[in-house]
Write a protein that binds this DNA or RNA. Structure first.
Lengths: 150, 150
DNA sequence: TGCGTATATTTGTCATGACAAATAAAAAGA
DNA sequence: TCTTTTTATTTGTCATGACAAATATACGCA
């Protein structure tokens, strides 16, 4: 093996993402929330703009449509959101936040802060920004490649 | 929402990891390999040291034991590895690479290089190293927190 | 030696990811 | 208007992640 996985940025990001997600799960559990990290993300975008469609949510969250459908279905069963078929275009369903979602909003924010604090301990704001910049560039590289392949 | 998910390092890493994995999947498919990114990782560590146990693999790959069991089972079905029960401790099984694994080794390496090249386009070696350093620190933060909770 | 505890692995269940295929409805074109 | 193509969403299948529980075996101590 000429390649060292341990010094491959790709692999380190993949591994770290798993660890981060696991950690977030624990923070959520500790705060007695009954949602998952990926359900958060969907709620987050709905808090930004209520009534988004499945497709819009998928685009914002950079998730697969199919998976967003399922996440929304879970949130619906849990009573956090409701689907409404669009009148203009009946293929589209708009997702609306329900009162139950408001009740957990603060707690969700607190979990986000808590998770970030754990992960970013001892890493300065400036470093975080530099990190974000590089991550963005990697993301662009991949997105470009995806569209290029198409 | 006071928090911006888009400027949260946690979230960016999580999102990027998903994109990276998707991209790796595509590179694998293009190279006609019948294994998955996570199966690669297990093979990689076996190429480093053949005969590791499930537990050792889990530790190295930072994966859940249960999941490693399943990944190894798939690799076994595919004919890339074989399980052998340890003589010293019959709870332990050692995983050994099979000839079929050798046949794909070069191709796997090529895929790794290809994926890295796509992701790291325009990012200097020095920047990659800085990035790795920060990622390591985040990883340490999380691992420390995990053990602290225990 | 025998029992209780610790350790290695496996199995079960659910959530999510990828991707393909199925549906349904809108839009475009002849 | 009818047909074809495009678009939005859903469903199906498999791989993997988390976590709990089940198994099997080893180890330590009375």
């Amino acid at each position: 093996m000429k390649i060292r996985l341990e010094s491959s940025v790709n692999h380190q990001i993949a591994t770290l993402a798993v660890l981060l997600k696991r950690q977030v799960f624990r923070v959520i559990a500790k705060n007695d929330l009954d949602i998952t990290p990926d359900q958060w993300v969907i709620l987050y975008f709905l808090w930004q703009k209520d009534g988004l469609s499945v497709g819009e949510l998928a685009a914002k969250a950079k998730k697969d449509f199919a998976n967003v459908t399922r996440i929304v279905s879970k949130l619906e069963v849990l009573g956090y959101v409701a689907r409404t078929q669009s009148e203009k275009d009946s293929r589209v369903s708009h997702i609306y936040l329900q009162p139950k979602a408001d009740q957990i909003k603060d707690k969700v924010q607190q979990c986000m802060v808590e998770s970030t604090d754990i992960a970013m301990k001892g890493i300065s704001q400036a470093e975080q920004e530099r990190l974000l910049t590089i991550l963005d560039r990697i993301e662009c590289n991949i997105l470009e490649n995806e569209t290029a392949v198409k």
